[in-house]
Computed example of a mutant assay.
Amino acid sequence: MKKMQAMFIGRAETIQSVYRPGVRDELHQLADFYPIVISRENLAEHGSALKSMEVAFSTWGMPALEEDEIRHYLPNLKALFYAAGSVQSFARPFLHCGVTVVSAWAANAVPVAEYTAAQIVLANKGFFQSAQLYKHQNRQEAAGYANAFPGNYNAKVGIIGAGMIGRKVIELLKPYELEILVFDPFLSDEVAARLNVTKVGLTDLFSQCQTISNHLANLPETVGILNKEQFDRMLPYATFINTGRGKQVVEPDLISALRDVPTRTAILDVTFPEPVHRESELLKLDNVILTPHIAGSNGTEVERMAKYAMEEFRRYVQEEAMQYQVSLKMLETMA
């Protein structure tokens, strides 16, 4: 069986860090690869050779090409395999050109969900501020603060967005016997019952839950959706976790709610802008924990994404049903 003509497209250093030698060796057994990693900068230079490319592999740093560029430089491209999460920034022109787009979003969802579940369990114990109080004040103050928290048994946890990551978080939290409330307009009653969660409105979720975690899709409709109306209703010792997108949070409203009630906590792995401005109040508030966008795949975790992409390509070659193919309809609601 003749091998397909394949290429890597994106930033060469990122391609190498995600598609590690073992995965690349397996891919080379399945397809004949163009020897140069293609980027927007060298697209025209290699234009004539690219006209025969049938499949492409990418990851973070995938260039956003216009439809006319795809048709001109990649007229025979049949499929694009993306070893990372969101494809919102580049997928539509490829889909409009009839190119199959496959994402390893399920692989990147795993570490995000693991990170989130860990933060939720710690937040319900008052870990974050009590650790600081012990260090900067004394043990008595730290213990007094922590004792105001419910712990994890029967505590209410709010999940905003029950997509791939949100559902994985719910799955990971099952052993803790929490009461999980979910805001997701697209979640059916049937699926909610299967997940053993309670659907609620966004404001109700903020007013009832001890810990709240954002996993909304990155869409124009969700920009600024988390604002004063929600943050002002947080419980006195509540924690807000954001591993979704910074743009979904109206930052001044969150800062105001945290300043007004210092026993509240925010754990922010994403912000807008990213990184935060040096003069931002988020850097000055003791009840804000900032991490540098580490919830997603890091270190050895990135290889999982490449393996998902490789296995999907194997299914593609063998004409089997793929698990993570993206459609235009899916882009309306997915992260």
Rank of each mutant, 00 (worst) to 15 (best):
E69D: 13
D25L: 08
L65P: 11
H96G: 07
Y34F: 15
G61W: 01
Y134V: 06
A56F: 04
A131Q: 14
T59L: 02
F128E: 03
I120L: 12
S89I: 01
E114R: 08
K51E: 12
E66M: 06
S48Q: 14
P35V: 05
F127D: 05
Q132P: 05
R71G: 03
S39V: 07
F57Q: 05
V101N: 06
D68A: 11
A148G: 11
V112C: 09
F33S: 05
G85H: 08
H96A: 10
L95Q: 07
A64I: 05
I120G: 05
P75V: 12
N124A: 02
W60L: 14
L50N: 04
V101E: 07
P63M: 10
L27N: 05
N138W: 11
T59S: 15
A91F: 11
N147C: 09
A117F: 00
S103Y: 11
E67C: 11
A109Q: 07
A146T: 07
I36R: 10
A148Q: 15
D32G: 03
W60S: 10
V102H: 10
V55K: 01
G98D: 12
A131I: 06
A142C: 09
K78N: 09
V102K: 13
L50E: 02
Y34Q: 10
Q140N: 06
K135H: 10
I70W: 00
N76L: 00
I70S: 10
W60F: 14
K51G: 11
L43E: 09
S58K: 09
F149C: 09
S103W: 13
M62H: 06
L74Y: 00
S39Y: 04
S130T: 12
V112A: 07
V23L: 03
A104C: 02
A118I: 05
N124H: 03
V102E: 07
T59D: 08
A104F: 01
H72T: 15
S130P: 06
R92Y: 12
V102Q: 03
A143C: 13
V99F: 08
T100G: 02
V37Q: 00
A107Q: 10
